[in-house]
Structures are given as structure tokens and as C-alpha cells.
């Protein structure tokens, strides 16, 4: 009897493993080996369209594998091929590359290699680049150097960083503007909001990445997800598939970028913006607290793209992730842009 039970358990395990989800069957999956890091690349969606959107994820230290969990990117995959990849030390990347030389240039170099690989494997398709948050900054750094932008038909900057010191101040303004209201709100956590005021008094010029507190403040003001419950309803997470039948493993929860992030604090890719001339869609959540919409104004102003070919769209009831908060509007805006410039 005991033997039978064990055999049944074994069969169940093996059957479970054989029952593959879309995470293991859809698209092409390969790795880029560069400078000690092994970066996973997932090309998913409508490859036959000949239009490839290369994503660049946020963080630093998050994962490109989060994009396809959102409804916004699921919609996009129906029309175009979308390239998801993880940066070094992040998400499902592997390897133990040298940590003595973590620079923005290294991340730009990785981005360049991913683009070259996609061009080579898919016969020089029509390319768009989409950077989110830190990925917006990284993609600007990449596109604005060595005429990389000329490889692309367009750039989609999704709530993207650009100039660390400036953003920290814009973020401060965005937060402090709302704190008095919170302090006066009935039933609010007054001690917390007073702490926010005190913290900024003690840190008048915070660092963009090294200081973590402002990100918690922004989160408390729904600056990451406009309405968390609604966002969860719109983008249900398939936990069972992710745990038992996907490429995800517990390693996903370990970011190697855990120590000093001062290398990213003072980044200013405004000069690179001035070199980007391709059509650009700047898509921002009006309630983004991590990279507030005023940063979008700054990017729009400094981007060298002719006015006719650049647009800044600020989305209502939307925070740092339009693809989660407002997937239909995100999809509609991106498709309209891609269709115009592909």
C-alpha cells in the first residue's frame, strides 16, 4: 500500500512536470553570454509581424520577465514580437560576473549585444525599443550613443528615468505636495506623514538610488500602483504556473545589485537625449511617484526628435506602470505609435 502511494505520488510529480504552461512553450528562449553574465532572452508574440519591440526593464535589479505578466504586454504580443530579457545581476540572469566594474557603460554594452543578437537572429527586423523606469534611462543612454537610435524606428519611454539628481528633487516635490493633505486627512497615519516631512528636512538633496526612503514614501502615496486591488484584478498572477511550470525559480528573488548603488545615483543622460532623433512616445502615469510625470516634460524638452515625431502622453488614474494600471490605454497608445512609424 505504501509502495503504491509513493508510486502514485511519483506519477503525479512527473505528470505535473510534463504539463507545460505557456511560459515553457511560447516563443523563442535563448541566452546571451557577455562579460561573465548569462542573460536570458525571451522573444514572444507575433514574430511574423516583422516588428520587434525590445524591452529594457527597470530597477536596477528587476526583471524583464515581469512585463509579460501584465495585460498591456499580453495585448502587444498579439500584434508584434516582444523581446524580454534580464539585465546582469537581475531576475533570471545567471553567472557571477566581476563586481569591481559595475558601470552604466556595462549595462549599455549588454543592451547593445542583445540588440545585435536580435537583429542577427531575426534578419534585421523593424525595431522599436521600450524602456521602463531605470530601463528608460538605460535605453536613452544606449540610443543616444554611437547612432544606435538609427537602428530603430522608434523609442517608447515608459515612466523612464533620465537624470538622477533632478529626479530626486522632482520626486521630493511630488511627495511633499501631497503630505499636507495626508496630514489633514481624517484617520491618516499622522506620525508617518510627519516623518516624511522630517526626513526631507534632514535630507534636502537625497540621492536618486542610494536613498531608499523616498521610494517608500511614493509607494505610500500610491505612486507605484494607482489602485492596487484593481491592478491585481486586471493582471491576475498565475502563481501555480509560475511556481510549477515556468522558467521562474527562487533565484528570481535574489538581486545581485544589493550593495552600493551610488554608481547609478548621479547618472545624467540628458546629453544622450540630445542625440536621439527617432520618433518617440513618452508614456507616463499622471500619478507616478517613482519617476513623476514632470520628468516626462523634461525628457520631451531635451529630446532631439522633431516635434512632429515626439509625443508625451500622460495617463489618468495611472501610476508607475501603465501596462498594469491602464493596459488598454497603454496598448492603444503603443499600437498607434508603432503603426505610424513601423
Amino acid at each position: 500500500m505504501k509502495t503504491h502511494s509513493l508510486l502514485l505520488l511519483l506519477c503525479a510529480l512527473i505528470f505535473g512536470a510534463c504539463n507545460k504552461s505557456e511560459f515553457l512553450t511560447e516563443g523563442d528562449y535563448f541566452h546571451l553570454d557577455h562579460n561573465g553574465a548569462k542573460l536570458p532572452v525571451w522573444v514572444k508574440g507575433n514574430v511574423d509581424s516583422g516588428v520587434f519591440i525590445i524591452t529594457v526593464h527597470g530597477g536596477p535589479g528587476d526583471s524583464g520577465h515581469e512585463f509579460p505578466l501584465s495585460k498591456g504586454f499580453k495585448y502587444l504580443e498579439e500584434d508584434y514580437a516582444v523581446v524580454y530579457w534580464d539585465q546582469r545581476f537581475s531576475g533570471l540572469s545567471q553567472g557571477d560576473p566581476d563586481d569591481s566594474n559595475i558601470t552604466p557603460e556595462l549595462f549599455i554594452e549588454d543592451t547593445e549585444k542583445v540588440v545585435e543578437l536580435i537583429r542577427h537572429r531575426y534578419g534585421d527586423p523593424t525595431l522599436f525599443m521600450l524602456g521602463h523606469s531605470w530601463g528608460g534611462q538605460l535605453s536613452a543612454g544606449y540610443l543616444g550613443r554611437d547612432d544606435h537610435d538609427q537602428l530603430f524606428n522608434g523609442w517608447i519611454d515608459l515612466d523612464g528615468s533620465i537624470y538622477g539628481a533632478l529626479e530626486a528633487q522632482i520626486m521630493k516635490d511630488w511627495i511633499l505636495e501631497q503630505v499636507p493633505g495626508k496630514l489633514n486627512e481624517e484617520g491618516s497615519d499622522k506620525a508617518f506623514w510627519q516623518f516624511v516631512l522630517d526626513w526631507y528636512e534632514a535630507h534636502p538633496a537625497p540621492d536618486n538610488y542610494t536613498d531608499q526612503e523616498p521610494y517608500f514614501f511614493a509607494d505610500a502615496l500610491d505612486g507605484y500602483a494607482y489602485d492596487w486591488e484593481r491592478t491585481q484584478e486586471l493582471n491576475p498572477v498565475p502563481y501555480h504556473e509560475l511556481i510549477f511550470s515556468s522558467m521562474f525559480s527562487l533565484a528570481y528573488y535574489v538581486s545581485g545589485l544589493t550593495t552600493d548603488q551610488s554608481w547609478a545615483d548621479d547618472l545624467n543622460f540628458t546629453p544622450e537625449l540630445a542625440q536621439i532623433t527617432i520618433p518617440s512616445l513618452l508614456l507616463w502615469g499622471k500619478n507616478d511617484g517613482a519617476v513623476p510625470a514632470a520628468v516626462g516634460d523634461y525628457v520631451y524638452e531635451h529630446l532631439a526628435t522633431p516635434i512632429a515625431d515626439k509625443r508625451l502622453v500622460k495617463i489618468d488614474e495611472c501610476s508607475h506602470a501603465p501596462h498594469y494600471d491602464q493596459p488598454e490605454i497603454f496598448y492603444q497608445q503603443v499600437v498607434e505609435f508603432v503603426e505610424q512609424y513601423q
Binding site: F192, F195, Q212, E213, F216, L257, T258, T259, Q261
Partner: peptide, 14 residues
């Protein structure tokens, strides 16, 4: 003297 505590690996807790 903070509401948050961070360690040297950027782990954090309120």
C-alpha cells in the same frame, strides 16, 4: 532614528 531599517544588502523593513 528612522521608520525604516536597511542593511548593507539593501534589504529593508518598516
Amino acid at each position: 532614528d528612522n521608520l525604516y531599517y536597511f542593511d548593507r544588502y539593501r534589504n529593508s523593513i518598516r
